[in-house]
Design a protein around this nucleic acid. Structure first.
Lengths: 217, 217, 217, 217
DNA sequence: TATGAATGAGATTTCATTCAT
DNA sequence: AATGAATGAAATCTCATTCAT
């Protein structure tokens, strides 16, 4: 299942073209969904013939896998920058900020990631489960460190807390990537739906709450 | 946009048949996605002819809207049972429990709901935005009541707290409806992926953590 | 492998239409070969939309099988009319005449039958092997009867003789169905290639030789 | 139509490479048919680049012609070894044996030859008609010599006899080159289809019968 | 001369929608 | 009102052929 999903031809073309194609794939998948994305659109947007696309990826599903496995690694990096560096508070804020920034700059990757949780796309689950498990491990170790530092109250259920932080980060990204969820966030934050200003950066605001809640008093 | 999406014919058929059809629609949409669901499958699974389906709903999108508007109302009821009754703690537990139970009994509705947040399905956003806003209002009033009761510390950011509780409830439902998210939950809770027993009911466990965090100490 | 290869829909349409479609399929397969025949051509020549064609046969290969299994049965009948009736000489002449007539009236069936012997079409072999075996049995019993009647010399190798008669009948049909083989027959019979008159009916002439050779002297 | 179908470049490459390419072409055409064979497969199997193939043959049809005209000459040689040498019996046995051996060693050439009789490949008929006519002439002169030698009864219809011998030789080659025809031969000879041993060499057995039949008694 | 990436016409197949019965 | 056969636009995928390097 996992492994290489592109042809040797794809390895041989210029790196710039490769990036252009993968970006076009991600954009189309994020915009139209996995089932709804059309190979012809991807080809046009990447500036290649649609015959070429099939010389890079044997099938549409292979193309999806290629961009999922590669694109999802970028998402994992929202942890990489924060891991090991700084105190609990700094780490949590860094992850939330990274999540928000990723969702701001590459919303299509978030849309694609969200769609991978759907049953209709369960055939791709194996491509991201390792990343999801990795994220769980990281959150768990962050909370453990928080307890060791005294930044997290001893009575806190470590596993539930890690789950809570992950859910919050996921919801923040969703709120950034989806129009509907953006409106929903606006409803929570008390600003009008058309209002593009969501006030204080929600990622910072929510991170602040979470940190305050965990802190022993 | 919003309003009635079925024909007069659909109103005239027996209620039992109506339910059977809407259930089949929800099952197909949840299983195969909005783009992937096929009218022929819905017809076969509902036990009606292919042609009849089009005499009930002018188009596939109308059919989707009909089930979204109707099916999503069920989801809203996870609040209905808890609203106004009991203290803050009881209300939060009740909503989380309701969310978990709904996701257990009708996972296809959760899958459908999740897919409505995707950009590819943004044309249906208007059909659920009111419900989402309603949910935001309810969470906000629940937190406010919590503060009035003294069950929520005064320093807590009300809006962020409501957002947090909503995110947590959403994540719980997702963890129940999607195979991938179930495995992810297992990773957080420290049980094997094949292990069907997730230990203590996660909804109760997570609700317990949230309530403890909000409580003044 | 063997069995029904068409949909229930195909059973429900008028018999006349069914025949029209099967004839168009046989014509296209005989003319363009199995790989070369195009579904769009078949549809146009049968006077149905090409969408309909796929509602009758799930795939192109199913369509081929349907016409092979059905069309080949017609070929088997070149034996049916002669079996059991008359003396050895009459039977052999009848089979040769039937073969010639079938090849004259439905050359496309012969072309299709010939193409089924090719390795490229070996996936359809199971559909005609029973008919081929049946033909072998019939020739063997015809030769045996010939011996019992005294129309075939006792020293004749029964199995080889049956094989010879079958090869001869096959070659006659080939000579009738293929332009190249027709020219080749003309070369053997000493008439010009453009000459449409092949002299005495070759089927009768060749049957006459075979019968004379087998007869004890 | 007839003539040279390859480029000057093809003449300039090493003879070994030329043979390798023509063998790969024959193998692909025999295995997959003319319509089904893919240039990319031929290139890979011949160990040359895709582009080179087109520098040797302007089009796929030219490539087919090149191998047909060249490969078919080999088939004609099954007569060459026997022509002029030996008595009638020896000649007939020699041709049958040669046909059987060619079909055993180069079955793909037989498959290709069989496919050339199909209407779908009639555009190549001119490439082999001379060879077919030559074969007819040879059979006719062999039978005539047989009559002069007294090995063939005077009452035998010379032209029909030549046609019969050709049909028999063709059927023998077919029985060797095609899986289906091999099973059919097994049915005639009374051995199981899986039984790789066809008993006495069928070519000798059938030749023996033919010679016995022609012999005056 | 050799290579292999690029192209696009054309093939099979799907499926929402229509409509005669 | 119900049925299911019919339709054709549109999707994925193939592959002979071209051409820059």
């Amino acid at each position: 299942m996992s492994g290489v999903h592109h042809t040797a031809t794809f390895d041989n073309i210029p790196a710039e073209k490769r990036e252009r194609i993968l970006s076009a794939v991600a954009a189309a998948l994020g915009r139209d969904g996995i089932a709804g994305a059309r190979m012809a659109d991807v080809a046009r947007e990447a500036g290649v013939s649609h015959g070429s696309l099939f010389s890079y990826f044997p099938t549409k599903d292979d193309m999806v896998r290629a961009v999922v496995e590669r694109g999802m690694a970028m998402q994992a990096e929202r942890f990489a920058g924060s891991s090991g560096a700084g105190c609990f508070d700094a780490q949590v804020r860094s992850v939330f900020r990274g999540a928000w920034d990723l969702a701001s700059s590459r919303p299509e990757l978030i849309s694609l990631w969200l769609s991978l949780s759907l049953e209709e796309n369960s055939r791709f689950a194996d491509a991201i489960l390792p990343l999801e498990r990795d994220a769980a491990e990281r959150w768990l170790s962050i909370v453990e460190r928080g307890k060791a530092e005294g930044a997290v109250a001893a009575m806190v259920d470590t596993r539930a807390a890690a789950y809570l932080l992950d859910a919050l980060a996921a919801q923040l990204m969703k709120s950034r990537a989806s129009g509907l969820e953006r409106d929903k966030l606006a409803a929570f934050m008390g600003v009008g739906p058309g209002d593009s200003d969501l006030g204080e950066n929600p990622a910072e605001r929510v991170a602040g709450l979470a940190l305050a809640l965990f802190r022993p008093r």
